[in-house]
Write a protein that binds this DNA or RNA. Structure first.
Length: 586
RNA sequence: GUCCCCGUAGCUCAGUCGGAUAGAGCGUCGGAUUCCUAAUCCGAAGGCCAGAGGUUCGAAUCCUCUCGGGGACGCCA
């Protein structure tokens, strides 16, 4: 329970009292009533909108109602004053002894500060990355990977039982192309001059080692086979090799999935798994044979009007019904995806999250429709879209083209700038807004680089402890017992600003989890680091504000409790983002 | 043509289940360091929150429309 919860409870009880007195009607909707930190510190330490929310149902003037509530809030011992302001806000000013309680709370909670059980231990499946196994990951994949991973960490921190999952698209035509491309490299490894890689095959030289390994395993045996014979062999080997590559790439970003689910398995035994899902949908009346109107806009060249097997997606909020079978009788990607989401549902994941790229925006409605249909409305799917990343180098956009072989791989970026900056920068933007990734800025070691700014904040807290050991002979900061700090001397405005910020952390975490927006944590950390740096710098001109006061151990002890609390919170937030919290930066 | 996302300071963006005088960084200008890491800090200037209606005690936030940018639009994955 955080600071705000405590006061919301107070307010709630006061409203109960007013209901009993007949001032507020019993059925008044209290949902909008909140206690928050006013933006302007001149408005006090805490404020509530209770009177404005309840004025109308109570048929009262907001300010008059506010006066009544304020009177009762003023009786709480920790409240120094409760005043009505503006249209009916109630502003609370707390006793100065209040804020240090936050420091104590942070230190007592340790790594658990901000942790909650909002999820109640509910199982939750988050599918992310799911890049096609046709080559190494490029920067475009990086954002979804980092976002999904940070979201998973965040949801775990807030009490969900999270399963991280990767859907391997190993069933379509793309992996056949991969196999043919690999076969070419196999022939090359056997000494053949393959010349230019033909149009339509993957030209990247990441397939060269695979060709060599195929030649070592199979010798020239594959050469005498028909494509129908060698293709499955080469395809399996190629997919395994590409997935190994992708796992390595992900590991470089500190990302590890719990489950890798193969699309191909859904197509095995003549598509038994997919067929079964379609059958169950059919018996529920969600499948029919019919024709679709041609798509608007530019008509595909091979458009033919034909009767086909359709899913009544429109019954579940989609714009059109969706095809489940291709004209050659095989299942569509969507059909397999329904079976996949059904599989996840059957594994106990009523709540699922899919992290998809920007180009899949048009896919959301049908996926949601599908999960609703196969779960009888019991399943819940959230789809988070990650927008494009624009790479900038020396102020100019880096154009990427697969055909020209100029795409920047995830590995390149991580090796050039490091994991921490990559992860942090990817999380400095709301996921559904496009993001500029500027190499120069990200590698810069200055305050212009948010990740260094925040990490340096953490390093600074650690540095102060080291400094303390040097200042006070025999001091071992590891044994500094914050529990014995009196916490009565943290009265400077800079210190109070930091404590106010610390108090917000649990709410920031809860809000970020509810909105599934880890970027809020990145912004919070930036602000907390800023408060720390700002306060620290004041000690430059005002020596009495320095953390270490060699002739006043009591004060020093209090200040170190605060510094420890800041370091603790910075580390907690960075950990959720999957970014390291260095103890020293030089 | 339909659907989705976006439009906030010169630039890059926060803020959006409605709250008080709309914030931060960069850039510009002016300052701070004999002393806890200057990888830092302080100050100033900078706004018709794309536009128009509507709902409300109250709108950047919700609704409708318009304009502008991006994306998607049977069998690709």
């Amino acid at each position: 329970m955080d600071l705000f919860d405590i006061f919301e409870e107070h307010v709630d009880q006061i409203i109960d009292g007013l209901v009993a007195e007949g001032v507020v009607p019993e059925d008044a909707n209290r949902r909008g009533v909140i206690v928050e930190l006013p933006r302007d510190t001149g408005h006090g330490d805490l404020s509530t909108n209770a009177a404005m929310v309840l004025a109308k149902p109570s048929k009262m003037n907001p300010r008059a109602l506010a006066e009544q509530i304020a009177g009762k809030l003023g009786e709480i011992d920790i409240v120094a004053s409760a005043e009505v302001a503006g249209p009916g806000f109630i502003n609370l000013r707390l006793e100065t002894s209040f804020w240090p309680r936050i420091v104590k709370a942070v230190l007592e909670a340790g790594d658990d500060y901000g942790k909650s059980n909002i999820g109640g231990g509910a199982k939750l499946n988050i599918e992310y990355v799911s890049a096609n196994p046709t080559g190494p990951m490029h920067v475009g994949h990086t954002r979804g990977a980092v976002f999904g991973d940070a979201l998973a960490r965040l949801l775990e921190f807030t009490g969900y039982d999270v399963c991280r999952e990767y859907y391997i698209n190993d069933a379509g035509a793309q992996v056949d192309v991969l196999a043919r491309s690999a076969f070419l490299r196999y022939r090359e490894a056997l000494g053949e001059d393959i010349g230019e890689i033909p149009e339509g095959l993957y030209p990247g030289d990441y397939l060269v080692p695979l060709g060599v390994s195929l030649s070592e395993t199979h010798g020239e045996a594959l050469l005498s086979m028909d494509e129908a014979e060698w293709l499955p062999i080469v395809k399996d080997a190629a997919i395994d090799a590409m997935m190994a590559l992708i796992r390595e790439d992900l590991a470089k970003l500190n990302i590890h999935h719990d489950v890798f689910f193969s699309e191909k398995t859904l197509h095995e035994n003549n598509g038994a798994a997919i067929g079964a899902v379609i059958e169950s949908l059919r018996s529920a009346g969600h499948i029919y044979r019919g024709r679709l109107d041609p798509p608007k806009g530019t008509l595909p060249e091979d458009w033919e009007d034909r009767e086909q097997t359709l899913f009544r997606a429109t019954d579940f909020g989609d714009d059109v019904d969706r095809a489940l079978e291709k004209s050659d009788g095989s299942y569509t990607y969507f059909a397999a995806d329904i079976a996949y989401h059904k599989d996840k549902f059957d594994r106990g994941f009523a709540h699922q999250i899919d992290v998809l790229g920007a180009d899949h925006g048009g896919y959301i409605k049908r996926l949601k429709a599908a999960l609703k249909a196969i779960s009888d409305g019991k399943g819940e799917l959230d789809v988070r879209i990650c927008q494009l990343v624009k790479l900038l180098r020396d102020g100019a956009e880096v154009k990427m083209s697969k055909r020209a072989g100029t795409f920047v791989t995830l590995r390149d970026v991580v090796e050039e700038v490091g994991v921490d900056p990559v992860r942090f920068m990817m999380l400095m933007r709301k996921n559904d807004a496009t993001l500029d990734f500027d190499f120069a800025r990200v590698t810069e070691q200055s305050k212009d680089n948010p990740v260094f700014y925040v990490q340096y904040g953490h390093a600074r807290t650690c540095s102060l402890f080291r400094q303390l050991e040097e200042s006070i002979p025999g001091m071992d900061s590891a044994n500094l017992d914050h529990a014995t700090a009196p916490l009565t001397r943290l009265t400077d405005e800079g210190e109070i600003a930091i404590m106010r910020k610390l108090a917000q952390y649990p709410r920031v975490i809860a809000g970020a989890a509810a909105a599934q927006e880890p970027h809020r944590i990145a912004f919070y950390l930036y602000e907390l680091a800023s408060d720390l740096h700002s306060h620290w710098a004041r000690g430059k001109v005002a020596p009495h504000l320095r953390i270490i006061q060699e002739d006043d151990w009591e004060l020093t002890q209090d200040r170190f409790a605060l510094i420890a609390a800041v370091g603790n919170t910075l580390k907690s937030g960075l950990t959720i983002l999957g970014v390291s919290a260095p103890r020293e930066m030089r």
